[in-house]
Design a protein around this nucleic acid. Structure first.
Length: 524
RNA sequence: CGCGGCGUGGAGCAGCCCGGUUAGCUCGCCAGGCUCAUAACCUGGAGGUCGUAGGUUCAAAUCCUACCGCCGCAACCA
């Protein structure tokens, strides 16, 4: 019984440098979706990986005097170390240099060849004899026909190669976009691709390289290797058993969503479906192109693209080790809209962290734990079997959760988090302020108890709503009290109603001298 | 005329598609309250000719036109 399955992927990364915060942003957004779907009972398969069969990678390894495979394996280890530190809940991590991937690739390309969508031709381009490689038309234009490295004239050169008949799929693609308006998300990206294809059209693409040692040899002509893009996209199906596990493949394909960066939208929305069709497979259901994270230069105020050239790379580990994985997750998910672009600066990071995580959420938890601990010896007796009053009475919880779901499913994580904070957590703090249980307890201990019972119910709901975003902290909140349902089983629907529980509500959090350890210590 | 996005109080954003109460939110700033809590929390306040110029309309941040400025993509930069 697999009523609901959910197969999602992120783009696979070039391992020629360690992941930076922009790379992590993509994985984060995908991870929230995976966690959210799991809470909803989906059988989730989340695939990630590294794209290793490129000349750049073998060159980088050579620079370091390392064996290419050993270099790739080490980078794969380092990437996964970062993803694990960020609590990215992937199920499988594919290295394209793995033998399994290569074998499945060969099967795929052979099938496309047999189906007549690959032909041999000549590729012409601007070649630098010093670099021994082709330069792009852009390089040619920008450097007035000279090699950017050698400053020598580029020469026109052509060599035999294999082309994929992408142009043959143009009409089918346009029709597909029309019939599946959600295929490319967000909408702005869809418009971009559609107009691009309509105005410029699609050309056949060179999918081979000649005379390379590193890469996957083409089965029907081993003199050539498969061009990285053709091979990289195939990760999405070789990772779920294409070519060697028909059952697994049938279960998960077509993918529900590919999460990618906006720069590679055309590969995923034009080349990829066409490749699949050429091999007799279905296109994926959706491609979500997220925005980029830029770096705000704190001294000049300029917004810069992240890159080694500018020396402004921030590594995820730098943030994680200084603060926490959840702090990292929260900042990017709350501050940077996934469908468009966002910015990072340490100053802004501290602002968001302090105001929302420390002051609003963290402090609320501290208040909710300390008052029962001090005045009721941790136990709110008489609350068993009773349904608490709403701490946020004006809010229709059912509608609220439904609206949050809509935002999460559309990857508007920033909007969802804003709603949780502004429409739920802040009002809960206001509720405490209005009812002042610390004062009320002196005159009416039972009334004060009811207030706390309601406030703590808000924390139960908030922790569930926050679970996909900041899993560890959400768990810490939930397990600070004896809520009956086990943390692993909670779903978003559990947040949609105020719930009674069999036992009296009790504070189970660990206390030191009657105090809780702050969930998010303020950044000074 | 390559494609796309953006320009709203000091900073960051929402609102615009489907024009109409005192233009909303977060941070910062100022004043007050509270003291359970992580110098946290709550209330109030100052601060905006909604890029510019026209147009449509009883009415425009919201629709139309032109212009200015910033940014991204342009088929191996997440």
């Amino acid at each position: 019984m697999t009523a609901k399955r959910w197969f999602q992927t992120t783009a696979i990364d070039y391992p020629n440098s360690r992941p930076h915060i922009g790379t992590a942003f993509e994985k984060l957004g995908a991870d929230v979706q995976a966690r959210y779907r799991r809470m909803d009972g989906y059988d989730v398969f989340f695939l990630m990986g590294n794209d290793e069969n490129t000349v750049k990678v073998s060159k980088r390894a050579a620079e370091l005097g390392q064996d290419t495979q050993a270099y790739c394996d080490d980078m794969a280890r380092q990437f996964q170390e970062v993803w694990k530190a960020l609590d990215i809940s992937y199920d499988v991590f594919i290295q394209t240099s793995s033998e399994r991937h290569k074998q499945c690739c060969r099967k795929f390309i052979q099938r496309v060849y047999d189906n007549g969508s690959i032909y041999k031709g000549e590729y012409g381009g601007w070649y630098c004899e010093g670099c021994e490689e082709f330069k792009s038309d852009k390089d040619h234009k920008e450097h007035s026909g000279l090699c950017p490295n050698h400053k020598t004239p580029l020469v026109r050169r052509s060599e035999p190669c294999y082309f994929f008949k992408l142009s043959a799929f143009q009409d089918r693609l346009l029709k597909f976009y029309e019939e599946n308006p959600d295929f490319i998300q967000p909408e702005s990206r869809r418009n971009e691709i559609v107009s691009l294809i309509k105005t410029e059209g699609l050309r056949d693409v060179n999918i081979s390289r000649q005379g390379e040692q590193w890469g996957i040899p083409i089965p029907f002509d081993p003199e050539f290797t498969i061009y990285v893009w053709f091979d990289a996209l195939l990760t999405y199906i070789t990772g779920i058993g294409y070519g060697d596990d028909a059952e697994l493949f049938a279960k998960y394909w077509p993918a529900n969503t590919h999460y990618i960066g906006k720069d590679i939208t055309r590969f995923h929305t034009a080349l990829w479906p066409a490749m699949l069709w050429a091999a007799g497979e279905k296109a994926p259901e959706k491609v979500f192109a997220h925005g980029f994270v830029y770096r705000k230069n704190e001294s000049t105020g300029d917004v810069e693209k992240i890159g080694k050239a500018l020396g402004n790379v921030v590594e995820p580990m730098e943030v994680i080790s200084k603060f926490s994985a959840d702090a990292f997750r929260y900042y990017f998910l709350r501050e940077c809209p996934y469908p468009s672009d966002g910015e990072f600066s340490w100053g802004r990071f501290a602002d968001v962290y302090n105001s929302e995580l420390a002051n609003n959420l963290g402090n609320l938890l501290s208040r909710a734990i300390t008052i029962p601990a001090k005045n009721y010896d941790r136990v709110l007796d008489g609350t068993a079997q009773r349904t608490p009053d709403a701490a946020v009475p004006g809010l229709n919880l059912t509608n609220f959760v439904a609206e949050l779901r809509t935002h999460i499913e559309a990857c508007r994580y920033n909007v969802a988090l804003q709603m949780i904070v502004q429409d739920f957590l802040t009002p809960t703090n206001q509720y405490l302020e209005t009812n002042a249980p610390w004062k009320l307890v002196k005159t009416d201990k039972d009334a004060a108890k009811k207030v706390m019972f309601s406030a703590i119910q808000s924390l139960r709901i908030a922790s569930i709503l926050l679970k996909p975003f900041i899993p560890r902290s959400a768990e810490a909140i939930y397990t600070s009290f004896n809520f009956p349902k086990s943390w692993g089983d909670v779903s978003y629907d559990d947040a949609a109603e105020l719930k009674a529980q069999p036992d009296d509500l009790r504070v189970t959090a660990e206390l030191v001298d009657g105090k809780v350890k702050p969930l998010f210590p303020r950044i000074a």
